[in-house]
Design a protein around this nucleic acid. Sequence first.
DNA 1: GTGCTATGAATGAATG
DNA 2: CATTCATTCATAGCAC
Lengths: 217, 217
Amino acid sequence: MEEGRFQNGGGLGVKVMTDEQMEMLRKQISVYATICEQLVEMHKVVSAQQDFAGMGLGNPYCDPLLSSAVHKIGSRQRWTPKPAQLQILEQIFEQCNATPGRQKIKDITRELAQHGQISETNVYNWFQNRRARSKRKQSAVVPNNGESEMETDIESLKEKKTRAEDSQPDENTTPMADHMYFNSPDIGFDQLMGKIESPGPGSCIPYWQMEQYDLFG
Amino acid sequence: MEEGRFQNGGGLGVKVMTDEQMEMLRKQISVYATICEQLVEMHKVVSAQQDFAGMGLGNPYCDPLLSSAVHKIGSRQRWTPKPAQLQILEQIFEQCNATPGRQKIKDITRELAQHGQISETNVYNWFQNRRARSKRKQSAVVPNNGESEMETDIESLKEKKTRAEDSQPDENTTPMADHMYFNSPDIGFDQLMGKIESPGPGSCIPYWQMEQYDLFG
DNA sequence: GTGCTATGAATGAATG
DNA sequence: CATTCATTCATAGCAC
């Protein structure tokens, strides 16, 4: 990717990494965490069914320390505007009901920075969301009166399905891989499972494969 | 951690961490890996027993956690890249940091189609977005100082550490624990992952193994 | 502690 | 390409 270069003065006491690398790491850990969770859940279920077995195994997966530690690493906190910042933002939003330009964003960011940590992206997102939600709310309030109105609000966007040929909502729409975000990293999990799951006879479809069959049926 | 994604209002896009922090991280991951291993083993045993015991259990696994990730079955209209597809896309993007030509798009599409429904437009859009966002992030990280800060010394990086993060709520809570930045090769992620992953050889490499970063430089 | 709501963030797609 | 839109995900905060 981009600048992946850093030169930690060779074994100094510090390492450096880019945002992307950081993000990558976070995801990796997140995946790991989730996989563990899923494994644990799965094991619980399976174990429950075997009243006779596995009791001598102890509980290797109940490590509070571990989970707390990982949570810290694997979770991201999101920016929360401070009252002062919010007030300013709202004020600006009132004036120009549109997303400010890049420069404007910079300015706003700089100003808000005086009240607490904030980034341009935060500001950008804020306006994007603010606008989108403001709009949505508005159109939601007028659903029954002008339901036949084609150009007003919601419907106009709903009918945007112009390129039907492009996005087939069918098979590819694997719900499990929903979003590249790994709070539920299904990826890798099935593969992982593939390793431990070797019952042989395809008598039952393991839940981690279910989705492929039960998508629309 | 989140801060990482963007231009931290003027900060540079890198994070730093001490060896100590690194070590801690590594340990945490190590523990996780071990736990995963144990869980896998355990599951193997349990599963095997189940086989003998008469496995017509149907779908014993109904992990609520998992299903939550699988929700919204029939309600997606836009294409969502699957992990496998994403992995490939990222890989390609890494190579040619530019939008592929028409023919290239076709090829890519064909390849990705093996992993799920997809159209050329999807691919095209993906590259457009990927590039635009990558760019934006980059420029945001290096706003006025066209020169890469990384070129400088570790020393300077250390200094910047104070302001290295951007969207933390702020000064308060866990000032440091939240910033466990990783960069070291000391812990081979791929190897670690390989332990629990081990998919078929030719199969796809899970996204978390994408070694797109030259961490070990 | 369970669930709900508001909202920050991520991202596919559309528009200029 | 650069911006913007629409939609969705995930979580902080709060009610119960």
